[in-house]
């Protein structure tokens, strides 16, 4: 599965939830949920069992919330759709490296700036989270108490969030300088160094999935009500 083109992986992960919401409940949702969980056990989604378990653990709370709010029939119908969506995306995250997606987007003619937005955000989030944790530890060392009443907690939140946001904003100029140095000008097309291989079969498969989703929607609207 990992060898598939990133757009093919995206098409599969997008088509399953689309079909889950389009096909009649509960059988449509059940079929797509089974398919999505089967994907989490495919060799590409390694390590296999943790991917399956992550999908299961992520989807489980929704069933609890749904049971709290709805009858059993509605819970099953909505739960299977949400489960399909969760399992498909968990599988996608395990099978698709963000760097491959960026290369594929650039190869397909997307602007380098669009690809940069996603790649830069993905790499910045763990860095800022780690910095946020360091700021929490540092402020605690200085005597900041994140407990007490709401007003006291809000003051603590300000003391934790402000250094994080300000330090991140000060990085904008450094990042802009780095981008200019590397010649990233919005609107200019770049050539990827190692574009993921694509094939006619995969392109047909992607269009096939789009056609199946569109056909299911038309069938549901016109014949099935």
């Amino acid at each position: 599965m990992r060898r598939l083109h990133p757009f093919t992986l995206l098409a599969i992960a997008g088509a399953l939830p689309a079909l889950a919401w389009t096909l009649p409940a509960p059988w449509g949702g059940l079929a797509t949920a089974v398919l999505a969980f089967a994907l989490t056990l495919t060799p590409g989604a390694s390590p296999r069992l943790p991917v399956f378990r992550t999908a299961l653990v992520t989807a489980a709370p929704f069933w609890v919330f749904l049971l709290l709010l709805h009858d059993v029939a509605s819970t099953v119908a909505i739960g299977l759709r949400i489960t399909t969506m969760v399992a498909s995306f968990v599988w996608l995250m395990a099978a698709l490296a963000p760097s491959r997606l960026v290369e594929a987007m650039v190869a397909a003619g997307w602007g380098a700036s669009v690809a940069y937005l996603f790649a830069a955000t993905l790499s910045a989030v763990p860095l800022l989270r780690a910095r946020a944790r360091r700021i929490v530890d540092a402020q605690r060392c200085r005597g900041l108490s994140p407990r007490g009443g709401v007003a006291s907690r809000l003051r603590a939140l300000r003391a934790l969030a402000l250094p994080l946001v300000l330090s991140a904003l000060h990085e904008v100029d450094e990042r802009a300088l780095a981008l200019e140095t590397r010649g990233l000008v919005p609107g200019v097309r770049r050539t990827p160094l190692a574009p993921p291989p694509d094939s006619a079969l995969q392109r047909i498969g992607r269009w096939g999935l789009v056609t199946v989703c569109a056909a299911a929607l038309v069938w549901r609207v016109t014949w099935s009500g």
């Binding site: 700036s113 940069y116 937005l117 830069a120 955000t121 910045a124 989030v125 860095l127 800022l128 989270r129 910095r131 946020a132 944790r133 700021i135 929490v136 994140p146 407990r147 907690r153 809000l154 603590a156 939140l157 934790l160 969030a161 994080l164 946001v165 991140a168 904003l169 990085e171 904008v172 100029d173 990042r175 802009a176 981008l179 990233l184 919005p186």
Partner: peptide, 22 residues
């Protein structure tokens, strides 16, 4: 252009501060 990913990452990283104050 450089501001966008930084701002998006701020939104996603603030959860650590929120967790600390519960």
């Amino acid at each position: 252009l450089a501001l966008i990913p930084v701002a998006a990452a701020i939104s996603l990283a603030l959860s650590a501060a929120v967790e600390a104050v519960a």
